[in-house]
Simulated assay, not measured.
Amino acid sequence: MTIAPTTLTRAAGLCAVAAGLLFIGVQINHPHLDVAFVTTTESTVRQSAKVLMAALSLAGITGMYLRQVKQTGVLGLLGYVLFGVGYLIIMSIGVVATVVLPSLVHSAPGYVDDVLAVAAGGHATGDIGLMEPLNLLSGITYLAGGLIFGIALFRAGILARWAAALLAGGTLATIAIPLLPQINERLFALPTGVALIGLGYSLWREQRTPAARPMPGPVSSRLDPAGTR
Results as ranks from 00 to 15, higher is better:
4 A>P: 00
15 C>F: 08
22 L>V: 07
29 N>M: 08
30 H>S: 14
31 P>Y: 03
37 F>E: 15
37 F>L: 15
39 T>F: 05
40 T>D: 05
54 A>S: 07
58 L>M: 12
62 T>N: 02
68 Q>F: 02
71 Q>R: 06
72 T>H: 02
79 G>V: 01
84 G>Y: 00
85 V>I: 15
86 G>K: 00
88 L>K: 04
90 I>A: 14
91 M>W: 06
93 I>M: 15
101 L>G: 07
102 P>A: 08
106 H>P: 00
107 S>H: 13
112 V>P: 07
121 G>N: 10
129 G>D: 01
130 L>C: 02
131 M>L: 15
137 L>W: 03
138 S>W: 15
139 G>P: 02
140 I>E: 13
140 I>P: 13
142 Y>S: 09
142 Y>G: 04
146 G>R: 00
149 F>M: 06
149 F>H: 06
158 I>F: 12
159 L>E: 15
161 R>I: 04
163 A>G: 11
163 A>D: 13
165 A>M: 13
170 G>F: 00
179 L>C: 02
185 E>L: 06
187 L>F: 11
189 A>E: 10
192 T>Q: 08
194 V>L: 14
195 A>T: 01
206 E>M: 10
213 R>N: 13
215 M>Y: 10
216 P>F: 08
217 G>I: 06
218 P>W: 06
221 S>D: 13
221 S>R: 09
222 R>F: 14
222 R>N: 12
222 R>L: 15
224 D>I: 04
224 D>N: 14
225 P>Y: 09
225 P>F: 02
227 G>Q: 12
227 G>M: 11
229 R>Q: 11
